[in-house]
Each structure stands twice: as C-alpha cells, then as structure tokens.
C-alpha cells in the first residue's frame, strides 16, 4: 500500500518526470541546468576538500607508510613490503586488543541497551522520583570521557572512595583495586561506560515507546492483558528499529573508545584492557613504530568502514 507521505516524497524527488515551467525553450533550459549543477558542485566542495584532505589523504598516507620501517622522525625509511602486515598476525598484543575490543563492545552494547530499556519502562510507572531519573540519567552522556576517566581512576583505587564505602558497609571482602586487577579491569571499564551512556539508549527507547499507538495499548488492557503481557506483545515488537540503531551506534563508539581507557588503565594490567586504539597510540607515538602503526591504522579503518556502511543503511530506514 502506498501511504500519502510516500506519494509526496516520490513527487518531490529529482528526475526527468519533474514538471518544468511551461514556455521555456528546452535546450536553453538544459544548458542552464548543466551550469547550475556545476555551480552546485562549488557548494559541496569545501566539505569534500576537508574530508578528503583529512580522511582520504590520511588513509592513503597510512597505506604508503605501512610498507616501510619508518620511525616517524628519521629522514630515511626502507621499504619492507608487507612485513608489517604479516607481523600483525603474530602480534600477541594486537590479538589481545582485538579480543578485548570485541568483548568490550558486546558487553557494553548488551548492558547499555538492557539498562536503557529498563529506565524507559520505569519512567512510565508511578514510582516516585521517575521524573528526576529522566533528567539525571542523561547528565553523564554530555560529560567528557577524559574527566570521567581521571575521576574513576582515583575513586576506584585500592585506597579510593569506593573501597572506603565498601569497608564502612562491612563489605570488606569486595574491596579490590578495581582497575588494577587484571580479572576485573575490563569489566570495570564496561560498567563505567554503561554508567555514562545508558542515558543515550534511554532517549532512543523512550522515543520509540512513546510512538506506540495508545489505542492498541488500551485495547490490550481491556482484553485483560497485564503489564508484562502488554510489554512483550505490544511494546517490544515496536522496538526492532531502536535496537538496530543502538547496536550499530554503540559498536561504533566502542570501537572509538580511547580516552577513558588511556586515563584509567592505559591498557593494563598486562594486556587485559588493551584496545585497538591504544595499541596504535603506543606503537606510533610511544615506540616510534610509525610504519607498523600505519598498518594497524588500516585494520581499524577497514573495521570502521563496515560500521559506516551499516549506519548509512540504517539512516535510510528512517524509523525507530
């Protein structure tokens, strides 16, 4: 079935079917069109130059440097072919970083979506404080991960404020250096991230739930459906688009994560919280392995490109 909005959109679209003002010679009109389209290109040129200059040229430069042993400073560099790429495959730190990035991304996505959905439901109950929750849940989203990182680093220290609270509450057994214990560090980073960004998934789910048709809900209620039943059979089916959008966006932001980890664990202890972004930083800036860092960067570019494609496809769906 064609909805009215689809009809207007189709009529607005570019194409030869578009109505032309009558009485104008077709050839002059076409020439004018071509000139206007070339002039139009000037309008998008600044954006194109900026993105090509920063992103595309940068990626090509990475590709060139990645076939050398350059240290980033010396005037000379020697070609090494694909050695940097074969080295990646046997780089244990890289493999750990790849695994950690995947674990971090999946854990953050699952918990953040679950928590965001729970909050979106909670603010629709009669519980006191629900409006305060609605406001406060989003505050951490606008804060800088760099600030959250330095704060967390000291609050979660062995002698930090959190352990102080645990001791005072008689939960001394739980006391540990949260970010310096290799079996807890990555999980702690996941929790910090979920704490910061649950407000984001809440906003998306909140909007999606408010689009559920009230008449359908009322009908379900009259039919005697309980809250749980109403949620699973009326609300949940409406949230598919929201899940998809959030999964892609959370994966992208997990892939980009650097500040929080750099300022808390810097990848440690050992390689337990090493991420792809940190590995590139260490190799390029701290160890002067520019050639190898460039090869690692291209791996990150390839992964990011997959998610860019997904995000563009989702933006075409235009629904939550």
């Amino acid at each position: 079935m064609t909805t009215p909005s689809q009809l207007t959109r189709a009529a607005d679209g570019p194409g030869p079917a578009r109505a032309r003002p009558a009485g104008e010679p077709a050839r002059a009109r076409r020439r004018h069109d071509r000139r206007a389209r070339l002039a139009g290109f000037l309008w998008l040129l600044p954006a194109l130059v900026l993105v090509v200059g920063v992103v595309h040229v940068g990626i090509v430069y990475n590709a060139v440097i990645s076939t050398t042993d350059w240290n980033g400073i010396a005037p000379t560099r020697n070609p090494v072919g694909l050695d940097n790429y074969t080295a990646i495959l046997s780089d244990d730190v890289f493999l750990a970083a790849l695994r950690n990035t995947a674990v971090y991304a999946v854990a953050v996505t699952v918990l953040q979506l679950g928590a965001g959905l729970a909050v979106a439901v909670l603010v629709r109950t009669q519980a006191r404080g629900r409006n305060l929750l609605r406001v406060l849940i989003f505050v951490p989203v606008v804060l800088s991960p760099a600030i959250i990182g330095t704060t967390a680093r000291y609050l979660l220290d062995q002698d930090g404020a959190l352990n102080g609270l645990l001791r005072a509450a008689g939960l001394g057994d739980l006391v540990r250096p949260w970010l310096a214990d290799s079996s807890f560090a990555l999980a702690t980073l996941v929790v910090i991230t979920v704490w910061q960004y649950t407000g984001y998934s809440f906003v998306i789910y909140d909007a999606a739930i408010s689009q559920v048709d009230p008449a359908t809900l009322e009908a379900a209620q009259i039919d005697g459906a309980g809250n749980l039943r109403m949620f699973t059979s009326v609300v949940l089916p409406h949230l598919r688009g929201a899940h998809l959008v959030l999964i892609v966006l959370t994966a992208i932001s997990s892939l980009k994560t650097f500040d929080l980890v750099m300022l808390t664990t810097a990848g440690g202890p050992g390689t337990s919280t090493e991420l792809l972004t940190l590995h590139i930083y260490e190799q390029t800036i701290l160890r002067f392995h520019a050639g190898y860092g460039a090869a690692l960067s291209l791996v990150l570019v390839a992964i990011a490109l997959v998610f860019a494609v997904l995000q563009v496809r989702l933006s075409r769906l235009r629904e939550v």
Binding site: V51, V54, V55, H56, V57, G58, I59, Y61, N62, I65, G72, I252, L255, K256, F258, L276, T277, I280, Y281, T284, I285, A290, G293, A294, S297, L298, L300, V301, A304, L305, F307, A308, Q311, V312
Partner: peptide, 14 residues
C-alpha cells in the same frame, strides 16, 4: 560519508 565511523586514532601517523 565514508568517514562516518572513523576513529581519529586511525589518522595518528598522517
């Protein structure tokens, strides 16, 4: 739009 999901880190060297 190809640059949409690119982490700035991937451009460290250039």
């Amino acid at each position: 739009v190809a640059g949409l999901a690119l982490p700035g880190m991937a451009l460290t060297v250039p």
